[in-house]
Design a protein around this nucleic acid. Structure first.
Length: 447
RNA sequence: CGGGGUGUAGCGAAGCUUGGUAUCGCGCUUGGUUCGGGACCAAGAGGCCGAAGGUUCAAAUCCUUUCACUCCGGCCA
């Protein structure tokens, strides 16, 4: 069996053998990304970009539904703006890219390519804000940012990445806190509802919080290999930036006040998480809600009379139901080749339809996560498929959740924890007094 | 930024130790037969061996430098 398995998936390194290579193989063979001539910068190819578009449209709809609007701010930020918030510049300065020349002219002031846009957005907010009546400011932008990373991995850590960054201003501290948690919850929905990726929600320690934040909240997902992935963050920035940038408004009492500020972001890293949570040694496994194509129809012996006609009929029926469906009637490759190809690409459901099926008013369906052939009737096939897709979406979430729970441990004894750590990958729940000293000690002693 | 690995046709590899002008599989092109788990036959196209310099009559092979990718660590979305 093991040998047979290997023959089928000869192009993908099994994850048990080398998890990192498996991941790289899956994304390269599926043509999600490719390396560009610039170190650390990746090209996102159509199939990979389609996944990002799914995340974008889902999240964007939620943002709009909660009153946010999109804007666009410039790519370049003057050095002096970056320098205004002390912790912020210390956090980001080591990894920014600089523009020092325009055409043949050396610039009087260096410009940074945005690593994140708090500073330039605050600069503009100062210009615009004057009264409490204008608050809250609820804005978001979809863009890319650049952080000069030393080592990179497609989707997980690249020098340029696509993301959205929301930047809001509020009259009160409570409102800002509510906003921070509200957006974190939308991120949880993106992960859990759309991507079937269970996450743990939490607050970052003082040490790990965003550079310049008052408090940082995060969601983390557990990968197949037992490692956690930071999948999205929401920051309550307090008045750190609004004071540094002197953003003021006239409050209800007539006095000048500084607004409270939040920012929050998710990025193309989520795609890396998606792959590492669901996929297997045959390639991608996509939850139906994420899949650019949900059902692929593969006709068998398609030159035989009636096969293609029936396949097309099915296609129309399924499409009319609102399911994203494809019909592969190409003759270049055998059905067996197609089976493997679409399994690698992670299409949730495959339908086989051949002369024998047509005779019996049936089709063969195979769910990508189960890989078992199942006979389904052609009557109401679109209903059957619709239900299968819903079930699969739920099953994938439950499966990932079971994996997470099986790898979550309660730690009561610190010494025991240190012993267990190398052999028990996953989440560890433990009590912590909250001080920096203990955190440093933990990190030093356990990595 | 530290430590390891790899660069030979679109992809995966052999050749390097012991120098003699590049080989195999997949893919690709053309034609034909096929089609229920990666089909078969025939005929083709495609590479100055990551880059630069050196040694030599002669370099994929030896020497020096450099670049890229990749993995493991420290930091992040």
């Amino acid at each position: 069996m093991a040998k047979k398995e290997k023959d089928f998936v000869k192009e993908i390194t099994p994850m048990e053998e080398d998890f990192s290579r498996w991941y790289t193989d899956v994304i390269l063979k599926n043509e999600l990304v490719d390396y560009s001539p610039v170190k650390g910068f990746m090209v996102i190819r159509p199939y990979g970009y389609a996944l990002w578009e799914k995340i974008q449209s889902y999240a964007d709809e939620k943002f709009k539904a909660t009153g946010h609007k999109n804007m666009y701010f410039p790519l370049l930020i003057p050095e002096s703006l970056l320098n205004k918030e002390k912790e912020h510049v210390e956090g980001f300065a080591p990894e920014v890219a600089w523009v020092t020349q325009g055409g043949n002219q050396v610039l009087a002031e260096r410009l940074v390519i945005r690593p994140t846009s708090e500073t330039i957005i605050c600069y503009m907010y100062k210009k615009w804000l004057s009264s409490y009546r204008e608050l809250p400011y609820l804005y978001n932008q979809w863009c890319s940012v650049v952080r000069w990373e030393k080592t990179t991995r497609p989707f997980l850590r690249t020098s340029e990445f696509l993301w959205q960054e929301g930047h809001t201003l509020h009259e009160t501290e409570e409102e800002a806190q509510t906003e921070t948690l509200k957006m974190l919850d939308i991120y949880r929905q993106v992960a859990e509802d759309l991507m079937a990726m269970p996450v743990v929600i939490g607050q970052k320690s003082e040490k790990e919080k965003f550079a310049g934040a008052h408090a940082t909240y995060t969601m983390e997902a557990l990968m197949h290999d037992g490692q956690a992935l930071q999948a999205g963050t929401s920051h309550n920035l307090g008045q750190h930036f609004t004071k540094a940038f002197d953003i003021k408004f006239q409050g209800r009492t007539g006095k000048e006040e500084y607004p409270y500020h939040t920012s929050w972001g998710i990025s193309t890293r989520l795609i890396g998480g998606l792959i590492m949570v669901h996929s297997d040694n045959r390639g991608l496994v996509l939850p139906p809600k994420m899949a650019p194509t949900q059902v692929v129809i593969i006709p068998i012996a398609q030159k035989k009379e009636g096969v293609l006609e029936k396949a097309n009929e099915l296609f129309d029926k399924i499409k009319a139901k609102g399911i994203r469906v494809e019909l592969d009637d190409s003759t270049d490759n055998s059905p067996g080749w197609k089976f493997n190809q679409y399994e690698m690409k992670g299409y949730p459901i495959r339908i086989e339809i051949g002369p024998r099926d047509i005779e019996n008013n049936q089709a063969v369906s195979v769910r990508r996560d189960k890989l078992e052939k199942e006979i389904i009737s052609l009557d109401n096939i679109e209903e059957t498929l619709s239900e299968m897709l819903d079930t699969m979406q739920k099953d994938l979430f439950e499966k990932a959740k079971a994996h997470r729970d099986a790898h979550t441990y309660v730690v009561k004894d610190y010494e025991q924890y240190k012993k267990d750590l190398p052999t028990k990958p996953g989440f560890a729940k433990m009590m912590w007094c909250g001080c920096r000293e203990c955190e440093d000690k933990l990190k030093e002693e356990t990595g």
